[in-house]
Amino acid sequence: MSTGGLILIAIAIAVGLAGIFVPMLPGSLLVWAAIAVWAYLESTTTGWVVFGVATALLGAGILVKYLWPARRMRAADISGRTLLAGGALGIVGFFVIPVAGLIIGFVLGVFLAELASRHDRRRAWASTVHAVKGVALSVGVELGAALLAAAVWAVGALLLH
């Protein structure tokens, strides 16, 4: 593969990594697809091994991303409806206040949903803090897996060129 092709793959991986933080952009899927395209174009044993390792890392990351924080949220008695409200206001906030609005909207949405169900500001805020920590954990797990997959690709690309 040419240097230009490697640069395009690297850009696609970088966009995927950024997509982990941006709603509506499938971060891990983009990283995986870029590595899949690279492996297909290389068509070497090393390329396919790199793709297999990256697939395993990303798959494990996605599995842990959903199971670990979800279990913590259930333990804190935070409902899916609360997270949906946070996500909806987060998306609205993203367009009202670019980038920072995502976080502000999510926190506000979770707080308002918890306040409506608990009728106690202190308990609602404690639940909001717990939900934000859970989402941060989820994003961190996905980002970690995607960064490991990107590192595996970088090593494979260096070995082949």
Rank of each mutant, 00 (worst) to 15 (best):
A34D: 10
I103Q: 04
A76H: 02
I7C: 02
A116I: 04
V135G: 03
H119C: 04
S127R: 05
G90A: 08
A56L: 14
R121K: 15
A145Q: 03
M24W: 12
I9Q: 00
I103N: 01
E142D: 11
A56C: 03
I97H: 04
Y66N: 14
L25G: 04
G4C: 00
A76T: 09
L41C: 15
R118L: 09
I13E: 09
F51G: 13
A157P: 03
I104T: 12
R122T: 15
G134P: 02
L108A: 14
A145Y: 00
E42Q: 13
A151H: 09
M1P: 10
L25H: 06
L143M: 10
V99W: 10
L58Y: 06
F94R: 05
G19K: 12
S28T: 15
G4T: 05
V152R: 05
A100V: 05
G101C: 07
A113E: 01
A70I: 00
L29Q: 11
W68C: 12
K65Y: 13
K133V: 11
E42D: 13
V53W: 12
L108V: 12
L158Q: 15
I104C: 09
K133G: 07
A149W: 13
P98F: 02
Y66I: 14
A151G: 11
V49G: 08
I62A: 14
L67D: 11
R72F: 02
L112K: 01
A36D: 14
H130F: 06
K65E: 15
A157D: 10
F111H: 07
S43F: 14
A136Y: 10
G16I: 10
L89A: 00
A39I: 09
I104E: 12
A136L: 05
V139M: 12
F111E: 07
A113Q: 09
V155H: 11
T3E: 14
V50Q: 04
I9C: 03
R71P: 03
V155L: 15
Y40L: 15
R123P: 08
T128Q: 01
P26G: 09
E142N: 09
V110R: 11
A14V: 02
I13D: 10
A154M: 06
V22H: 05
I11Y: 04
G16K: 15
V31W: 10
H161K: 06
S127C: 07
R81Q: 12
G140I: 06
L102E: 04
A146R: 06
A33C: 09
R72H: 00
V92H: 11
V50M: 01
T44C: 08
P23K: 04
R72P: 01
L159F: 11
F106D: 02
I103D: 06
A34G: 10
G87H: 03
A136Q: 11
A60R: 00
W153Y: 15
H130M: 11
S138C: 08
V129M: 04
G19A: 07
A124F: 07
G87P: 02
I35Y: 13
V99K: 08
D120V: 07
I35S: 06
K65T: 06
G27N: 10
G109P: 02
G16E: 01
A18W: 04
F21M: 00
A34N: 11
G47S: 08
L30A: 06
V155A: 11
L147C: 05
Y40H: 15
V135W: 03
R122W: 13
S79T: 13
F95M: 00
I20E: 00
T44H: 03
A126N: 06
I13K: 12
V49D: 09
M73S: 13
A146P: 02
V37L: 15
A113M: 08
G144R: 01
V135L: 11
L84H: 03
